[in-house]
Every structure is written in C-alpha cells, then in structure tokens.
C-alpha cells in the first residue's frame, strides 16, 4: 500500500513538474495554452489562436528538451542507486569508474582535432567514456578472472585522475577564444541545444537499460551483502556485477555523450530515495529514477529561466543539490546509511 502511495505521489509530482516546465521560460506560455497546443497536435485538430511562435517554442524546443531532461535525470538517479548497491559505498556515483573524465577527454580531443565534423563530440565522448571504464576494469581484474569491488573503485579513481590531467593538457592546447569555452561549457552539462533529432538514440538506449535494472532490482539486495555472502546465498557474483555495471555504463555513457557531464544527481538522489522508502532496492531503484527525473527537471528549469541567459545545468544541480543533501544528512543521519 505504502509502495503504491509513493508511486502515485511521484507520478503526480512529475506531471505537475512537466506542466510547469512547459509553461516556464523567458518566453512564458500559459498552462491552458500549453494544453490547447498539445491536444491540437495530438488529435490533429485545428491549432488554437497562437501568439508569436508559441507552438514552435513549445513543440520544437521545450518538449524535446524536457523529454531529454527526464531521460538523463532518471538514468542518473537509477544508476546512482545501482552503483551504490554494487559498490556498497555511500560516496559512489555512477561516474565512479572514470566515465565522466574519459568522456570529457574524448569530447575535448574531438573539439580540437576533429572540429567541424558532425557528431564528432558525441562520438569522442562515447569512446573516451567507455574506454576509461574498460581501462579501469583491466587494471582491477585479478588473474583468476575475478574483479574485487574495492579494486574497481580504486582503479576507477586512478583512471579518473589520469583522464582529468589529460583534459588539462587538452585545455592547455585549446584555442582560448573558441575551443576552451566550448569544452568548459560541455563539461558542465547542458540541454540548451536539444531538439527532436538529438533524442535519437538516447530515447531508446536509456529505457532499455533502465528496464532490467528495475526487473532485477531485488538482486542488488543480495549483491550489496558483499562477495562472500552473496556467493553463500547462491549468487554468481561476478556475472551479476558485470551485468549491472554494463547497464549503468551504457545508460550513463549515452547520456554523457549527448549532454555532457551532469554531477550530483547520481550521488544525492539514492540517499533521498532511501530516506523515503527504506533501504530495500526493490523500492530504491525505481524511486531513484522518478526522483532523478524530477530533480533534474527542476534544476534545468532554474538553469534556463533564473537569468536572461542560460546557466550550465551541472552548476545548478550542485548548487541546489548540496544544501538539499546536507539537510537530509542532518535530519536522518542514522537512517541514511547504516
């Protein structure tokens, strides 16, 4: 019953947040008008009286952007919950294996050496991100074919710091008038240039990765007990660890490649989810997807309407994420973790 109640509240909040997001912006569209335009489009009826490009702003700019925000936000939240379960560590985010710094390096290389070619930044970020994770794996893997979790965290940290310094070299080489600002903004994450075309293929990849995370969420309870205990209970630990890590890396990697690095969501959201639903991963995993989507939607709304310009969304998530996190830590210090 409680589970159903939380689900209902999440859906309601999400719908309200989406409606408000369609209305908000430097170009405000009244909520009633939003509904009229969308229903006219959906049911192919005559468009209502439209002022100055309202339908273009709504349908071609805001709607695809909101869909992208929901996809990325939910994938960050759910991947954070899965990562913290796998690595048994409250400080773990989905970027733990070096995906963000690897992707930044790849994007930087693309911006400087292959600028002008279409989709090169996305491709470079994807190659860099997946390459970093692969490197972390190869470093951590023991000769017996087993990958201890602590070794993985450590090698992820090593790979991250290596690629962070490589990003430094790229920044040093970059042209300080055009390339450097572009890379810096990319690394802070943004949804500013999202249209319908850029949703493809993320709109397929992320739900396809999230679905198995939810289906097998109970397995994370067992995995979270540690390698030895999970084996005692009959789990093929190595296989399930790889399965979950692969889902996280593909979901996060495809999002990072398109929208850049957006921090904090994957770290903070699972803690908030646990405070609401308790530690059972059957509840935490789907709830983190909802909360991640809602949180990032709020952050993106602030990013695009708080000032006349546009603040990179990665900055907003950190600025509103930190006090939020501290508040929850202070309020439920025991229940949050252990």
């Amino acid at each position: 019953m409680r589970r159903l109640g939380i689900f209902f509240i999440c859906c309601t909040v999400l719908i309200i947040a989406v409606a408000l997001s369609l209305n908000l912006g430097n170009f405000r569209i009244p909520v009633a008008q939003v509904f009229r335009i969308i229903s006219a489009k959906l049911f192919n009826t005559a468009m209502p009286e439209i002022e100055k490009y309202q339908d273009v702003v709504l349908l071609s700019l805001r709607l695809p952007r909101i869909i992208m925000v929901l996809l990325i936000g939910s994938s960050l939240g759910i991947s954070g919950a899965v990562s913290q379960g796998i690595f048994r560590n409250p400080l773990v985010s989905p970027f733990i294996l070096g995906i963000s710094s690897g992707a930044s390096f790849g994007a930087g290389v693309a911006m400087i050496f292959f600028s002008g070619l279409p989709f090169m930044v996305d491709l470079g970020a994807a190659i860099g991100g997946f390459g970093a994770v692969l490197a972390a794996f190869l470093i951590a893997r023991s000769p017996g074919g087993f990958t201890p979790r602590l070794s993985l965290v450590l090698s992820g940290v090593i790979v991250s710091s290596f690629f962070t310094s490589m990003v430094g070299i790229i920044k040093y080489l970059a042209d300080s008038d055009s390339q450097l600002p572009a890379l810096t903004f990319w690394m802070m994450g943004s949804f500013a240039s999202i249209d319908w075309a850029s949703l493809d293929p993320v709109i397929y990849i992320i739900p396809l990765c999230m679905l198995p995370m939810v289906i097998f969420s109970w397995y994370l309870n067992i995995l979270s007990l540690g390698d030895r205990e999970a084996m005692l209970l009959g789990m093929n630990v190595e296989r399930w660890k790889m399965f979950f890590i692969a889902l996280v890396v593909i979901a996060i990697g495809s999002g990072v490649a398109r929208c850049g690095v957006i921090g904090w969501v994957g770290l903070v959201i699972p803690h908030i989810a646990r405070a609401i639903s308790g530690p059972n991963h059957r509840d935490v995993v789907p709830l983190s997807a909802f909360l991640g989507a809602i949180f990032l939607l709020i952050a993106d709304n602030l990013a695009r309407s708080a000032t006349s310009g546009e603040i990179p969304v990665g900055i907003v998530t950190a600025i509103i994420g930190t006090p939020f996190f501290v508040y929850f830590l202070r309020k439920r210090e025991v229940a949050l973790w252990n």
Binding site: R88, L225, E229, G234, N236, N280
Partner: peptide, 23 residues
C-alpha cells in the same frame, strides 16, 4: 551450480556487518 550448492548447504557466517539497514 552456484545456486545448486546453496540449496544443499547453508552456511551461517560468524558475523555479518550490514551496510544497508535492511528490515
């Protein structure tokens, strides 16, 4: 199989230090 062994043998460890406060 891994699960097959666990259906046959249940081991009670000396101690389990939980990370998550599961019910």
């Amino acid at each position: 199989s891994r699960a097959g062994i666990s259906q046959q043998v249940a081991l009670v460890p000396q101690k389990h230090e939980p990370l998550f406060p599961y019910l």
